Simulated assay, not measured.
Amino acid sequence: MRDLRHKLDRTWMTASRLTPQSGGRCVMFISAREGEGTSSVAASFALMAARKSQKSTWLIDLDLRRNAMFAAFENGFVRDAGEPGRAFDASLKTDPIYTLTPPGVDRGSPNAANKLFTVHEIKKTRLLVSRFRNEEMRAGQRVQLRTQPEWWRTVRRAADWVVVDAPALSRSPAGLAMAAQMDGVIIVMEADSTGAEELIGLRREIETHGGTVVGIVMNRMGADARFADRLAG
């Protein structure tokens, strides 16, 4: 994962023009395939948002089993941000945005299964990064995301920005399930690699699921990250 903040000024300008449904702005980054740099773009954008936030910025990693965002900050993703701090319950007293199959966990209160999703304040910033507590799951148990509009409305009230890192569509449809909850969706593509048909197909999928695509980041990792403001057509 790389720090791309110095290359995302136009992305920031476009996202800042989004009109939130209520409360803080909510923007999602997604790609068609793995390895296109989506997590680098999302984390970098979230750091930019945190510096401008009066309340806080929440960085939500929808790839619950990997927790790649949390691991990146834990491993010193950027020099001017600290390590993740203590865990806070991210359930926000609402139904969780995930389900467990079979339900329940082995220990704790009857509601323990609803509190596996946490956020951690990144020291020296106003950024909170999500983590799913996979270690509390039973052997063979599965976790699946589900749409919970009330949770998204609640987190918007708690934060100035909600930045969502969705897994690539080739890996999981999780981003599509949450697209309708966003103010805008930004597609990340590896420049000179992802084909136009693939890009158009992803845009169509997002819009079919109620999302609004506001642009693309054409990403060359470590070389360039150019933003195309609002897709034509």
Rank of each mutant, 00 (worst) to 15 (best):
1 M>K: 01
3 D>P: 12
28 M>V: 08
36 E>I: 09
38 T>N: 12
39 S>H: 04
42 A>F: 04
42 A>M: 03
45 F>S: 05
48 M>Y: 00
48 M>S: 02
52 K>A: 13
55 K>S: 07
58 W>P: 00
63 D>T: 14
63 D>W: 00
63 D>C: 08
68 A>E: 08
69 M>P: 05
69 M>S: 06
70 F>H: 11
75 N>H: 06
76 G>L: 03
77 F>I: 11
79 R>T: 14
81 A>G: 03
86 R>K: 15
92 L>P: 00
103 P>W: 12
106 D>H: 12
106 D>R: 09
112 A>D: 10
113 A>N: 06
113 A>P: 06
115 K>E: 04
119 V>Y: 00
120 H>D: 09
133 R>G: 07
136 E>M: 09
138 R>N: 03
141 Q>W: 06
143 V>S: 06
147 T>R: 11
156 R>L: 07
157 R>A: 14
160 D>M: 05
164 V>T: 05
168 A>G: 03
168 A>L: 04
169 L>I: 13
173 P>S: 06
176 L>H: 08
176 L>P: 03
178 M>L: 07
181 Q>L: 12
181 Q>F: 04
187 I>C: 07
188 V>G: 01
193 S>H: 15
197 E>W: 06
199 L>C: 15
200 I>F: 06
207 E>V: 04
211 G>L: 09
214 V>E: 01
214 V>D: 00
215 G>D: 10
216 I>F: 04
217 V>P: 04
217 V>H: 10
217 V>A: 11
218 M>T: 10
221 M>N: 15
222 G>A: 07
223 A>L: 10
224 D>F: 13
224 D>P: 09
225 A>S: 13
228 A>C: 12
228 A>M: 14
229 D>C: 11
